[in-house]
Write a protein that binds this DNA or RNA. Structure first.
Lengths: 378, 378
DNA sequence: GGAGAAGCTGGAAACGTTTACAGCCACGGC
DNA sequence: GCCGTGGCTGTAAACGTTTCCAGCTTCTCC
């Protein structure tokens, strides 16, 4: 009667092997038994194709062997890089990965943290865009270990975190542009009320300051983190400042723009396209630098200089921290904060204006503007 | 004593409210009770911040409310598009999404199908690259509903499937190229022993045949589905056939190539880059067409013409089919096969060679070759 | 006022596993 | 020959929930 429909259970095997369910469990978990018993149980299990019910196991053991990763949109290559690493680490340790796109809805992020209480997964890696007081409260009372990828207000929440240093990253990028002769460096930023947005702006200004350049608010665009917005922003910039190149409508009006620093690669790709469509050459007329060093840097032409903020590594570290936390006996070790150092990856899009760009042999059009408008014009 | 540490359970609430755990469960699931009972239970639950344990619920109910999606590599935008749709549908119906990258290891794919028996999820969406007899066997004996995204050998396995029609898709692309005046149409394909690889090749040949063009084996490259391989392949092609443009080393040797059809967008991006780096203009000298219509089409310049094989839609349909199957009472409805029709999305990269490309105003270099080498040269 | 119905309630079983505990057997040492 | 020991084994409890069933109260209707 136990052997009626439905998948085989320990009981099915116990009957078949003529032993108790306890022995079945012991044999199957390698807890030792008489050779004869082992033989019979293993044979019976193989015959019926037994697979232990993971749910029952989780209920008994209090572990689901599942991890949750929540980010705003899997469409963003940065998150893809993280997912990949997290999945790799998780799989290696026998954990499954639960994915959660929050679509940047703060309410949804909170729901994810709170839902830890339902014991669906053993821990959470959260990549929040904005941190509200509710977030902190939710994190403080989280029912399971959480690792945050991003910056938390000073040890206000007792959770581990991995952060990128995007202030330094942005600074690196802008100083690189300055070092290669650029002076009118525009900045296309993401939303100003997000942590990345704030930090990248800070880095931009810090670099300008260090370099002795004055910050021109007209050179800054604030928009969303998409390719299309990147293009639109650059069009607006050039409409305001003139092409600085072949005399677009505004060509005579201002000193132009000789570099565009974008707060991520999507924006940078959009920027490249806008520049192309106005007949401006990269990097001869305008240099472009992105951030995140995603697969997108090789998508456009020329390949984009970008700042690697260590997405993959942050994913890896977060997964490792979380698994340590889960395995940890002493639950009250203080929260750890790790920062990955950004790295500038120079590619053709930011080669100095007056040196021939080695890989970009396209656009053999005659130079139709001074290669580097400089600061002193007009 | 029950109220000792650990998260609150129905028992905690029952004690607090002075009722039985049965009443707690009934109230919490809205199964009706005396108003006074409802009030007390709800109050107690709120006070202790009770959240039902999903694992226990799954064990009792036999449903985990989890779906699994397995594909080879989340790095591929096609899969990202699918994941997005699947996650949206799943979330709307209260299901979580479990992600599984198989890294194209067939053994891993099998493991995923077999692991359905552990009751970790209620169903599987599988996106296999190659179908082996073991796959079919595993699918035939799968413990839970499976939907395959891709083509299965004639109803050999009793599972639902959603397929793209990439034969027709490839044909569309090539006929479009022919219609816009291209005659030397190269083909950069993915691995020949995969289903997509085979089908796209078939479509390519069919289109050539219909158009009365002879297939030149030297115009076909077979490689992996990556940007880098796309670039390498085009370099090989041009080394063999000459640029057909400004007299690269092989310029005088052959009729050249006036279009490259690539089996996916990654390859097409790589192709674009290779063409750029050889000083060839797109689309004036060579047209480029990709497949899948991923976000990558807007990443390069000019924007890529591509064939939308309906990745997102396939994801959506697969998720819907799976959920229907899971909810379905009668388990033995025959397997359904749905095919999404491909759609050609024309962009600048395949504009006719002799017409000015409207959006691509870059590369104002003088024409240094006949715009359309044609078939008859030299 | 009594009988029946209807609505709530609590006890207990069930989902499938792991594991604490106690019992059994055989064996060896005294 | 008896007892202690050690290795296996089976029974039963536990994980936290839902739900069947029986019993209780209360109400309605005659």
């Amino acid at each position: 009667m136990v052997t009626t429909g439905g998948p085989p259970t320990v009981e099915t095997i116990a009957e078949r092997a003529g032993v108790s369910i306890a022995s079945v469990s012991r044999v199957l978990n390698g807890h030792g038994a008489r050779p004869e018993t082992v033989r019979r149980v293993e044979r019976a299990a193989a015959e019926v194709g037994y697979v232990p019910n993971a749910v029952a196991r989780s209920l008994k053991g209090g572990r689901t062997r599942q991890l949750t990763f929540a980010m705003q949109d899997i469409g963003n290559p940065v998150y893809v890089a993280m997912v990949r690493q997290i999945q790799t680490i998780a799989k290696a340790q026998g954990y499954r990965l639960l994915l959660h796109s929050t679509d940047a809805v703060a309410e949804d992020e909170l729901a994810v943290v709170r839902s830890l209480a339902d014991r669906t997964s053993d821990g959470l890696i959260l990549c929040p865009i904005r941190i509200t007081p509710e977030h902190l409260e939710a994190l403080r009372t989280a029912a399971q270990p959480v690792v945050v990828i991003g910056s938390l207000p000073e040890d206000d929440a007792p959770v581990d975190s991995v952060r990128a240093d995007s202030v330094t990253g942005a600074e690196l990028a802008v100083r690189h542009l300055v070092a290669t002769g650029r002076r009118r460096i525009a900045f296309v930023n993401g939303p100003a009320d997000t942590v990345p947005g704030r930090n990248r702006r800070r880095g931009y200004h810090r670099a300008l300051e260090v370099s002795g350049l004055t910050a021109d608010p007209d050179l800054v665009e604030t928009t969303e983190f998409t390719v299309e917005d990147g293009a639109r922003s650059v069009h607006r910039l050039l409409d305001r400042h003139g092409d600085g190149a072949d005399g677009g409508t505004g060509g005579a009006r201002g000193p132009g723009v000789d570099a565009v620093f974008c707060a991520n690669d999507q924006l940078a790709l959009g920027a490249s396209q806008a520049l192309h469509s106005r007949g401006l050459r990269i990097p001869e007329d305008v240099a472009v630098v992105g951030m995140d060093d995603t697969v997108l840097v090789r998508a456009g032409w020329p390949p984009l200089t970008s700042v690697d903020l260590g997405s993959a590594e942050r994913g890896r570290i977060a997964a490792e921290m979380l698994l340590e936390r889960i395995a940890g006996q002493e639950p009250q070790t203080p929260p750890r904060v790790r920062t990955v150092t950004p790295e500038l990856v120079v590619r053709a899009s930011s080669a100095p204006a007056n040196s021939p760009s080695p890989t970009s042999s396209s656009s053999p059009s005659p130079a139709n503007s001074s290669p580097s408008p400089g600061e002193e014009a007009p």
